[in-house]
């Protein structure tokens, strides 16, 4: 798959400078990092700022960058979607990975999920609701996210669809993942073709892994 984001910090720095002059890209050992003051923008004015660090995975854009709030402004608690190390849970990662690969640039990530997350944090800080809602924590939130991505609510159906999407090629005579007993060609062929354009097999595999992991965590907690 084509890598579209340069992993050279100098090139990355140039990309950031126009909109994010306070962010700087650099290497720390083998890690490629972006660090600095991140502005929350409304039209062209800055409403607020957060000190952040972003680690760009070597497999970017096939992996979601990790983000930390490093100014110790956001309480590191579940309800603020922040881990104890300042790690920010912007969204269920596969929601980002389900975007077309050419749209998954670092700038788009900063302007989208990162900006939204920190804007929402300003609401939370003032005791207001998250303006676009929030996912439930853990397994339930993952199910919610994948239901949104696939348009399927039943967990079993959802997993069947994801399993199917892990294949590079899907045959029309296979059983439809909706559980109707029909073959795909006579059932959800249109829907499946549409999903294939958005969800790559690698994303489907990661999604299944995430569902399994969160399911076991939820089970572990319940036990």
């Amino acid at each position: 798959m084509r890598k579209i984001t340069p992993l050279d910090p100098h090139e990355l720095q140039r990309q950031l400078e126009g909109k994010y002059p306070d962010l700087r890209a650099f290497c720390e050992g083998v890690r490629l990092l972006v660090r600095g003051s991140f502005p929350i923008l409304s039209e062209y004015s800055v409403i607020d700022r957060f000190q952040i660090e972003v680690e760009i995975h070597p497999d970017f854009p096939e992996e979601t960058p990790q983000v930390w709030e490093i100014g110790q402004r956001i309480p590191r608690i579940v309800d603020r979607h922040t881990y104890t190390n300042g790690g920010s849970c912007l969204l269920v990662p596969e929601e980002w990975l389900a975007q077309p690969i050419e749209e998954r640039t670092l700038l788009a990530f900063l302007e989208g999920p990162v900006h939204n997350y920190f804007l929402y944090q300003c609401f939370a800080e003032l005791g207001m609701d998250w303006p676009h809602g929030e996912r439930q924590h853990g397994f339930e939130g993952v199910l919610e996210a994948f239901s949104g991505l696939l348009g399927v609510k039943d967990p079993v159906q959802l997993l069947n669809f994801l399993k199917l999407l892990t294949y590079e090629q899907i045959k029309g005579h296979w059983s439809c993942p909706c559980g109707s007993g029909k073959i795909i060609r006579r059932c959800h062929i249109g829907r499946i073709r549409e999903l294939q354009t958005r969800i790559a097999p690698s994303v489907a595999r990661k999604s299944i892994e995430r569902i399994a992991k969160e399911y076991h965590r939820a089970r572990g907690r319940a036990d």
């Binding site: 979607h81 849970c89 939204n116 676009h132 929030e134 439930q136 853990g138 397994f139 939130g141 996210a145």
Partner: peptide, 9 residues
């Protein structure tokens, strides 16, 4: 819009 989540690690 995106929605923040939390993995119960």
């Amino acid at each position: 819009p995106t929605r923040p989540w939390f993995s119960l690690e």
